[in-house]
């Protein structure tokens, strides 16, 4: 029971500050899970990967995945409510009382300062997943099976992973291909190259 409350409150806290959507939550989610002994960074990456290949809100998917891993179906429900309850409360309050406040200068100023921070944090979320899974790093930690590591500017880079990441970015930028198809293709490719 205690664990369920812990999951609920962790996600409620993360969700309340997750301006910019689910991806902002990932660094804190990984950190909190490592601290609580709920899973290693690579296990969390599995959860994020499953969240990314499922439809619907990524934040909800990640919460359900982690909740399920930590405490089965009740854990998944507790974590999911942790995302849903603050979201519902905030939206209803804003929709009822503050819909017009959106255009108030102070709100716009705060959003102007907040959005670049979110850009930086999401960029970090991407880089930290690459770091924690051995795609790049400052110390040689060849933890990817059959990886091709090269050393450049004092860092270590795994070529195959970084090529897939770059290809994903370019495909999303230049085409309208749905991410789920890129994930499926990369999973298929992964069986042969890793």
């Amino acid at each position: 029971m205690n664990l369920l409350f812990q999951l609920f409150f962790m996600f409620a806290r993360l969700c309340t500050f997750a301006f910019g959507g689910g991806y902002v939550m990932f660094p804190s989610m990984i950190k909190a899970s490592e601290q609580n002994g709920w899973g290693s960074a690579s296990e969390l990456t599995n959860i994020i990967a499953i969240a990314g290949m499922s439809p619907g809100p990524v934040a909800v998917n990640a919460a359900v995945g982690l909740g399920y891993k930590v405490a089965g179906v009740p854990g998944a429900i507790a974590a999911c409510l942790g995302i849903a309850v603050p979201c519902a409360v905030i939206v209803v309050i804003v929709a009822t009382f503050f819909f017009k406040a959106y255009n108030h200068p102070i709100v716009q100023y705060a959003l102007n300062g907040l959005r670049p921070v979110i850009t930086g944090i999401i960029l970090y979320a991407g880089i930290s997943i690459a770091l924690k899974n051995g795609m790049l790093g400052t110390v040689p930690a060849a933890c990817i099976q059959n990886g091709i590591y090269i050393s450049l500017f004092g860092g270590f880079f795994e070529l195959k992973s970084l090529l897939i990441a770059a290809a994903t970015f370019l495909i999303l930028l230049k085409t309208k291909v749905q991410p789920v198809f890129i994930i499926a293709a990369a999973g298929f490719l992964g069986v042969f190259i890793f």
Binding site: G21, Y23, F26, T45, N46, I48, A49, G52, M53, T119, I122, L123, A125, G126, I127, I129, A130, N133, M135, I144, Q145, K160, S161, L162, L163, I164, A165, A166, A167, T168, F169, L172, L173, P179, I182, I183, A186, G187, F188, L189, G190, V191, F192, I193, F194
Partner: peptide
């Protein structure tokens, strides 16, 4: 596990694209 090794970098690409 190999399939997931292929998927991780896609997740990195997705997150970088969101950023």
């Amino acid at each position: 596990r190999s399939a997931f090794s292929g998927i991780y970098p896609v997740i990195v690409g997705l997150i970088l694209f969101a950023s």
